[in-house]
Design a protein around this nucleic acid. Sequence first.
DNA 1: AACTAGACCAACCGCGAGTAC
DNA 2: CGTACTCGCGGTTGGTCTAGT
Length: 306
Amino acid sequence: MDEKGRSFKNNMEDEMDLKRGPWTAEEDFKLTNYIATHGEGRWNSLSRCAGLQRTGKSCRLRWLNYLRPDVRRGNITLEEQLLILELHSRWGNRWSKIAQYLPGRTDNEIKNYWRTRVQKHAKQLKCDVNSQQFKDTMKYMWMPRLVERIQSASASAASLISTTGSATTSSCITTSNNEFMTYDYNNNNSIGERLGVMNNNNYITLENSSVAVSPVSDLTDYYNAPKPNPDQNLVGPQMLPDNYFDYSGLLDEDLTATHEQSNLDWFENIDEVVSSSSESLWNIGESDEDFWFCQQQQQFNNNNDF
DNA sequence: AACTAGACCAACCGCGAGTAC
DNA sequence: CGTACTCGCGGTTGGTCTAGT
């Protein structure tokens, strides 16, 4: 039998013996043990040597996404959400690249977050997740709000960390200079690059980017875009040139009211939450976020009606 | 209690790039 | 140089859980 034939036969045998679907505890044990003694890599032969009836691919995925000791589990924090949104605006669906900036998070986890949470909100707003409208909503509404919430929480979180010593592992934080960066809470030092600066508690500019940011979504474009004549006594959100929505009306008026109220609710919650556990601290965002998005959806639909 | 819809997430698949032979 | 293999990435699927009816 020639080399091709042997390879084909081996592949057929592999196919016949292969196991798919959820991993058992025994398989996990075998894989973890094998990697502990022999290291990772050469996944196909690793699978055979470890006595696993799995493809190399499957072993690699299981190790990277689940068994690796530094995999961080649990809810995506506010800081991580902010990072994901920002990095996605930079790089798009480059999940593995984005994951590099979120220690312990896998590309799969981030991808799942994006598809379930972010795309859900796009659906609620009745617009495409890749549309400029939704990108702007994220950039000018959602992200500033996240920053606000992070800042609000940071004081409480900081005291929590100082008392417990190891409340979290690593994440992205905002500093007193309005910078935000990846941070190792356990060792109390910065472990990543400085990612950007907040302006007026509202906007974020990214620095040190090795990849050009799309000029269309650059804030300077937003500011430089000709504004409607202020003398025009227009009511409600106004369409700017180049299809920019003017969200300032939303920020200043209706939204602020609901926003402040939801913040009040949130602040009422946070003392209680912080005193209970750090895990819960990051969980409270979801209902608040959903509430906020309901408001956005209404406003957004009003915009389109206008 | 039974059913349904939606959310979540682990796992699979296909493809392209890199590497070994 | 061509082929097979490996690896990693992004897209997709399907199982499980939960909330609502």
